[in-house]
């Protein structure tokens, strides 16, 4: 009854498809009608051709870059979340670290990449750190926001019922962080790709797509560069979609009127004997 009707769902699915087609059409138009030479802007056809030809090499690079993104993302989210909880509960920590946090965001991450390589070497670690640093900030800010915006009266109510601090955290404060957390994660998921590429550009002994892009650019393989850009976009987009799906599952109260009943509980509530004395 609360399901979106099939036709509506179909319409909703149609919009993103339409968006892709629109970009494609504009791209085709620029290359064909304006006759831009393919070494300046390759046509979609040329780009896909390049992608296809280099795919046996590319897929491993995609995995490599995706791995950097996912691992860095997870590190950033976990550390950011714990940090926010700590700051939310101990005011002194918040007062000391919040300014440092803000200041750290004023440093361009590109500028930080070089010294990180000196400290951490050419391996996976500096890339993880760069990605994690990018993810960390929005997570801290949003989770902290969620923790502090919990209704004081709701906390008072829970306390009046005799709830201990642990229960209060698990049942009231923690779920309140989910909505802002997911806003942060969706942003962060797309940022991770930037972080991974910056990491690869600064230091790579083991190349990913970012490194490959740089290489193809130096060879004036524009179609190859465009192909790599498409792949990077796909990585970021997949991250975003995954997070959005996870959000849909984990915060059902935001998108649905009713909780989904677990199977077998359909009629569980119909005739229950009166428990309370009348």
């Amino acid at each position: 009854m609360n399901r979106v009707p099939r036709s509506h769902a179909a319409t909703r699915m149609a919009y993103p498809v339409l968006a892709v087609l629109l970009v494609w059409a504009a791209w085709e138009l620029v290359t064909r009608v304006l006759k831009v030479p393919s070494y300046v802007i390759p046509s979609p056809g040329k780009t896909f051709e390049a992608l296809q030809k280099d795919w046996p090499n590319l897929w491993q690079l995609v995995l490599k870059t995706s791995y950097e993104c996912v691992a860095g993302f997870l590190v950033g989210v976990v550390v950011g979340f714990l940090f926010a909880v700590l700051m939310g509960h101990i005011k002194a920590i918040q007062r000391i670290f919040y300014p440092i946090l803000i200041a750290s965001q004023a440093i361009p991450i590109v500028a930080l990449a070089a010294p990180l390589v000196i400290i951490l070497g050419f391996g996976l670690t500096p890339k993880l750190v760069i990605v994690a640093l990018i993810v960390f900030f929005p997570v801290v800010v949003n989770v902290l926001d969620g923790l502090t915006s919990v209704d004081k009266d709701m906390v008072a109510l829970a306390r009046s019922m005799g709830g201990n601090p642990v229960k209060l955290f698990l049942l009231i404060r923690l779920p309140a962080t989910l909505t802002p957390l997911f806003s942060a994660l969706k942003l962060a998921a797309t940022y991770t790709v930037t972080g991974a590429v910056i990491g690869e550009w600064t230091a790579s002994e083991d190349p990913g797509i970012g490194q490959d892009l740089l290489l193809k650019n130096s060879r004036l393989d524009t179609a190859g560069v465009y192909g790599d850009v498409l792949l990077l976009t796909a990585i970021g987009l997949s991250g975003f979609v995954l997070i959005a799906l996870l959000e849909h599952v984990l915060t059902p109260w935001r998108s649905r009127t009713m909780a989904r009943r677990r199977p077998g509980r359909r009629v569980a509530y119909a005739p229950v004997p009166v428990v309370e004395k009348a």
């Binding site: 209704d151 829970a158 779920p175 109260w253």
Partner: peptide, 23 residues
């Protein structure tokens, strides 16, 4: 309280049993 203070992520049933869940 004057505000209903229902917990947004709990269903009606979940809100009614909040006291039990907390204690």
């Amino acid at each position: 309280f004057q505000k209903d203070l229902l917990v947004p992520w709990r269903t009606v049933t979940g809100n009614i049993v909040l006291g039990a869940a907390l204690t």
